[in-house]
C-alpha cells in the first residue's frame, strides 16, 4: 500500500528488532538478520534501538509515544533501509510516525525516517528477489496474516510467495485467514474475554488445516496464537517466518 517504489538493492541495511522479539523471540530477530547477511548485505543492529512506540500510541499516550519514537529516529541516522521483522511495528513507523510528529520541529526527519521503513518479507521478495532452496523434511504449515502487515504495509502475498518457494513445504490456507487473532496489544488484557473468543476461533481454524506449524510475520500474533494453542494442548508449533525460512534453508 504505502511501500516505497522498488528501491535498488542496498549494500547496508538497518535491522529493527522490535521490543517483543527483543524479550521473547530473539532467535527470530537473529534469523532475520542472518537471512539478510546470507544475501550479501551488511546488517546493522543499532544497540540504542528499543520500541516503535506503538503500544503507547495505540493507548492514546501520544507524548510518551513520541519520546520513544524520537529515540528511534535519532538512532537510525544513516540513509539505509530499516528492515523490520514485523508488519505491525513497520506499520507504526511507516504510516503513523508522520502524523505523530506533525507540527513538531522534527516532523521532516520523522517523515524521512518513515520513508525508509520496510517489512522483512516484502524486502526479501521485492528488493532482494531471494531464491530459497529447501533442505527440510516434508511438512504442512499454515500462514497467519497479520492485520497491520496487510492493511498498513500492503504485505499480503509476499510471505506466502516465500513459503511457496520451499519445495518440502505444503501451505494450507486456514479459514478466515485474514481475520484478526485478537491480540491488539492492550486489547488482549483489557478485553480478555473477547480476545479469548477471537484467538480460540483462530486456533480452531488453524487446527482444521491439519498443519503442524503456524507461521507468522508478527510476534504479537504469534505470542497470542501459540499461547492459546499450547493452553489447548494442540500439537502445533508457532514460528516466525524468518526463523522458519532459515531453519528450512540453512539448518538451525
Amino acid at each position: 500500500m504505502s511501500q516505497p517504489s522498488r528501491p535498488s538493492r542496498p549494500e547496508t541495511v538497518y535491522f529493527f528488532g522490535t521490543c517483543l522479539i527483543d524479550l521473547f523471540y530473539p532467535q527470530a530477530g537473529l534469523a532475520g538478520m542472518e537471512l539478510l547477511r546470507r544475501e550479501g548485505l551488511r546488517v546493522v543492529f543499532p544497540q540504542n534501538q528499543s520500541c516503535c512506540a506503538q503500544p503507547a500510541r495505540n493507548s492514546g499516550y501520544l507524548d510518551e509515544a513520541r519520546a520513544v519514537a524520537r529515540r528511534q529516529i535519532e538512532t537510525f541516522v544513516e540513509d539505509w533501509p530499516i528492515v523490520v521483522p514485523s508488519g505491525s511495528c513497520a506499520g507504526m513507523m511507516r504510516t503513523h510516525y508522520p502524523a505523530l510528529f506533525e507540527g513538531q520541529p522534527d516532523a521532516e526527519r520523522a517523515r524521512a525516517f518513515a520513508g525508509r521503513v520496510v517489512e522483512l518479507t516484502w524486502f526479501l521478495v521485492h528488493v532482494l528477489d531471494i531464491r530459497l532452496a529447501d533442505k527440510g523434511e516434508p511438512v504442512t504449515v499454515t500462514w497467519h496474516a497479520s492485520c497491520h502487515a496487510m492493511r498498513e504495509m500492503g504485505v499480503r502475498d509476499e510471505p506466502k510467495q516465500l513459503l511457496r518457494q520451499l519445495s518440502g513445504v505444503t501451505l494450507v490456507e486456514a479459514g478466515h485467514e485474514t481475520e484478526c487473532c485478537g491480540f491488539g496489544g492492550t486489547f488482549a488484557v483489557r478485553h480478555a474475554e473477547i480476545a479469548a473468543a477471537m484467538v480460540d476461533d483462530k486456533v480452531t481454524s488453524i487446527a482444521r488445516t491439519g498443519a503442524s506449524a503456524v507461521i507468522s510475520g508478527d510476534c504479537g500474533c504469534l505470542m497470542n496464537i501459540t499461547g492459546a494453542i499450547d493452553k489447548a494442548g494442540r500439537p502445533i508449533v508457532g514460528r516466525h517466518i524468518a526463523e522458519f525460512l532459515l531453519e528450512r534453508c540453512h539448518g538451525a
Binding site: 528488532g17 522479539i21 527483543d22 524479550l23 521473547f24 523471540y25 530473539p26 532467535q27 530477530g29 537473529l30 538478520m33 543492529f45 544497540q47 488482549a188 488484557v189 480478555a192 479469548a196 484467538v199 480460540d200 505470542m223 497470542n224 501459540t226 499461547g227 492459546a228 499450547d230 493452553k231
Partner: peptide, 19 residues
C-alpha cells in the same frame, strides 16, 4: 492473559545481547 493462553516465555537474553 493466561486465562486461555500459556504465559509468554522470556528468552533469558535479549536480542540486543545476542546481536
Amino acid at each position: 492473559w493466561t486465562r486461555n493462553r500459556t504465559r509468554p516465555h522470556f528468552a533469558g537474553q535479549t536480542l540486543h545481547e545476542r546481536a
